[in-house]
Amino acid sequence: MQPKKLEEEILAALIEVAPEIDTAGLVPEKNFRDQYPLDSIDFLHFILQLEKRLACKIRESDYPKLSSLKGAVNYLELVQKEL
């Protein structure tokens, strides 16, 4: 999957969990939780959404790597290469 498409999936997963957020001003390098009111349960649900959308398994110990848009794109690109 192209990075652009991957990015769309990540944002769609985020909006599924927290539909109130406006991703227009999102800073890709910055932690999602520093930009939007998300709690730890939201973050977990976001990861589970991603797993569902991308039909992949994200290791629990890797969750922190997906805490920003850039981090999530980089991580998921690697995961897809390994598949």
């Binding site: 539909p19 109130e20 998300l38 939201d42 649900h45």
Partner: peptide, 19 residues
């Protein structure tokens, strides 16, 4: 559904709003 969830989260915050 998403709109209602967003509405509640905006007003109540994530800890209280319906999942």
């Amino acid at each position: 559904k998403r709109e209602l969830k967003a509405w509640a989260r905006r007003v109540l915050g994530p800890a209280v709003a319906p999942r």
